[in-house]
Amino acid sequence: MKMPPSPPANNTVDGARRRLLAGAAAIATLSLAPGVVLITAAEAKAPTGPASAKVRWGLLVDSAKCGDGCDVCVDACRTENGWTGHGRPRTDPQWIRMVSLREPAGGASWTLPMMCQHCRFPPCVDVCPTGASFRRADGIVLVDKHICIGCRYCMMACPYNARSFVHEDVAEQRPHAPRGKGTVESCTLCVHRIDAGGIPACVEACGRAGGGALTFGDLNDPDSEIARRAAAYAAVRVRADLGLDPAVRYHIPGRAAKR
C-alpha cells in the first residue's frame, strides 16, 4: 500500500470533514453509522495522516443548548474511550465532566462540559520532563503513554483540571484508546475518529441525544461552521487571561435566574 503525498490526503480528509459537517443531513448519517464503521472504512483505505498544521481542530460549546442534568457527552466519552469509574470519585478518571456555574448575585446558572482545552500553548506540554505530553500539528494535545513516567507535573500545570492519573489497574481497554495504571490521561478529542475523518464521540452523541450544543471543526478554516459561530458569538476562552489560546470555546449567553 503506497502512502500518498500528505497534502492531497489531508485535503481529502478535510473535504470529507467539511461535507460531513455541512448540514443536519450529514449529522443524521453519522448518527446512523457509528464511529466504528468509519474507522473500519478508513483502515481499509490508504494510511491516514500525518496530521497537518493547516488545520486546527476545535470545539464550540453552546451552553445555552446544554441542558441541566444532561451528561450525554460524558457518557458517550466514557463508552467510546472505556474509562469507567469504580465508585471512587476522587481517584476515578475524568476525561470530561459537567461543570455548573452560578452567578452569585442573581442566581442565574449554566452548565457546560469541561475537558482538555487543547491549548495552542499548553502548560502541560511545557512542563512535561520527558516530552510525553505533546501537541500534534493539528492542535490536539495528547499524552504519549509510552514515555509517560507518571510524575503528574502536567496535572499540576493544567489550569482546567482536565487530566487524570490512572490510580489503579485497568482492564478491557478499547482498542483505539489504550490506557494504563501509573500514567496520565485526558480527552484526546477522539483523535482516532478524527484521523479517520470522523467527529468526536461527545459531539456525535450531543447532536443525536443531547441539545446539539457541541460543534466540532477546523478553527483555521474561516468558512467552517465552528469558525463562523465562534466569531458570531465572540466565544469565550476559559482562563483567557493566561493567553493559552485553547481550541475549545464556550458560548455563555445570558440566562434568566431560576425562581
Binding site: K45, D144, V191
Partner: peptide, 21 residues
C-alpha cells in the same frame, strides 16, 4: 510505527499491534 501513529496520526500502515492481536 507506534511513534508515527501517536505523534502524527499515521494510522493504517503495515505494522499494527491491533493486527497482531
Amino acid at each position: 510505527q507506534r511513534d508515527e501513529t501517536v505523534r502524527q496520526g499515521i494510522r493504517g500502515r503495515k505494522y499494527s499491534l491491533k493486527e497482531c492481536v
